[in-house]
């Protein structure tokens, strides 16, 4: 189980903050396959956001195949995002560190390096596809009980 927190000044949509925090927890191993996510009620009681925001975040995570709802039981983690190749002691990280050192030696500032890396990333990874617009359906009390 994880606890969410909301940065109201970040400019990132609240539902996306929730999505990112679950992804981060999956990368760090804080959440593992089979773990249950907090129910919508638990989340909104703690951080005082609209329940639809939580449902929207969970739907997005479900769309990405990271979690699955189990009717009457809650929302559960399906797969992990932790990758050995991205760990702090991995060869890839060492290569990246060496590359950054060369960029710095060539006189680039931090922002130049970040811009360069971002442009290479953009070339290699297609832009993320935007999730479909979310219009919450009118709810009856029953539809939310899936989370209990």
């Amino acid at each position: 189980m994880i606890a969410f927190r909301i940065d109201r000044r970040s400019g990132v949509a609240t539902y996306l903050q929730l999505v990112q925090q679950v992804r981060q927890a999956l990368r760090l191993g804080v959440l593992e396959p089979g773990d249950r996510l907090p129910t919508a009620r638990e989340v909104v009681e703690a951080i005082a956001v609209n329940p639809n925001t939580v449902l929207r975040a969970y739907r997005e995570l479900e769309r990405e195949g990271l979690v699955e709802p189990r009717p009457g039981r809650g929302t559960f983690v399906r797969r992990s995002l932790s990758r050995a190749a991205a760990a702090t002691d991995s060869p890839l990280r060492a290569e990246a560190a060496a590359w950054v050192a060369r960029a710095r030696a060539a006189g680039l500032e931090r922002e130049d390096v970040a811009a360069l890396a971002a442009s290479v990333l953009d070339d290699s990874f297609p832009p993320p596809e935007l999730p479909p617009p979310f219009i919450p359906a009118p709810r009856s009390p029953q539809t939310l009980e899936e989370d209990t």
């Binding site: 009620r41 909104v44 009681e45 951080i47 609209n50 329940p51 939580v54 939310l144």
Partner: peptide, 16 residues
Amino acid sequence: RIEAMGLVMAEVADRG
């Protein structure tokens, strides 16, 4: 404020 708002949101989540 956060506690009271959380309470309202939780009841809304439960009962629509």
